[in-house]
Nucleic acid binder design. Structure first.
Lengths: 169, 169
DNA sequence: AACGTAACGTTATAGTATAACATTTTCACT
DNA sequence: AGTGAAAATGTTATACTATAACGTTACGTT
């Protein structure tokens, strides 16, 4: 498995190396603000996640981590999950529940909920921030429900895959 | 583990046996309409799900299924998952991704998306139907994204658990 | 009854996540 | 620099969730 899937549309329309760098800069800032330690391992995991630029599973992260650290320490699943827990807590990554996978947050630092458009064809996940649906707030209020977090996962076809599909018939 | 958790708030404010019966009646109607076979196994699984009246895991369903069929056939995980897949396809149950659990749909037959208020304290999941958030539709349209399904899982505190918590300090 | 298909049983295994404990690293304080 | 407490990571084992693959049974049609 490769970190880079150059056939993925996400890579076509931007300079991807910037994403990783920007994410690391933002992560250092967030952790500094929160008094949290952005260790080498956590940085490695976040880098792997951003390099993938797609939802990536914990075990895939583990493989890449092992490949990146030949001969040295041998991380096992708990190591990865602990790093992921940390990154989730700091708001640096999101978990895509529909895919059992993780993806870098596009605007860390600002409190927001997890909202994604997920392509069933190419598995690209595009984060968006639409605020809390008014109707949802209304429902919750009517039910006396205290909202702690919101997860909105929309699956369907991204423009590229929709186009490809209609071309092929 | 018991099918009935009488301490669960969901049981307090209604006659629960009606839920199961109503769900079975609705399920038969839906399957008849769709030309699908509502077999004994599928009925048993749906009954177990409704009897739980909470999100329930596949393996918990399996245990209850084994308990209900002493000595006869011995369902294994695939049997349960196949029944669940069927019920999901017919729109008779929903999967709560946040919990890896399944729950009966409160208004089967009418096309709708999966939207739940999930209590982190008592795991009760309350389905609601708020329609598609206008902002989401707008975002999807702007991104040329073709929506296939929407999953909205809101976690927080239900009224009962919020009350209990504030009473205890 | 014979056939084809759908449903279910059965065995094995893949994939995701965490418990529990040992070791190392880090940081504050001397 | 040395020390001790706490945090982070390493390590082993295992729990939990889900599916692949194949055999058998049940069902409806002819």
């Amino acid at each position: 498995m490769s970190v880079h899937s150059e056939d993925n549309q996400a890579f076509i329309d931007h300079d991807h190396s910037h994403c990783i760098e920007d994410a690391l800069v933002a992560a250092r800032a967030v952790c500094a603000t929160n008094g949290a330690r952005f260790t080498r391992l956590r940085e490695q995991v976040l880098t792997i996640i951003w390099a993938s630029h797609q939802p990536i599973g914990a075990y895939a992260i583990l493989e890449l981590l092992l490949a990146a650290n030949p001969g040295q320490r041998k991380p096992a699943p708990p190591t990865v999950y602990r790093a992921l827990d940390f990154l989730l807590q700091q708001g640096l990554v999101h978990r895509i529940n529909s895919l059992n996978a993780y993806i870098g947050c596009t605007h860390p630092g600002s409190a927001h909920h997890s909202q994604f458009l997920i392509c069933t064809e190419c598995s690209t996940a595009r984060e968006f921030d639409a605020g809390l649906p008014a109707q949802l707030v209304h429902e919750a209020a009517g039910a006396d429900f205290q909202i702690a977090s919101v997860l909105l996962e929309v699956t369907g076809l991204c423009p590229q895959c929709a186009t490809g599909r209609s071309q092929h018939g």
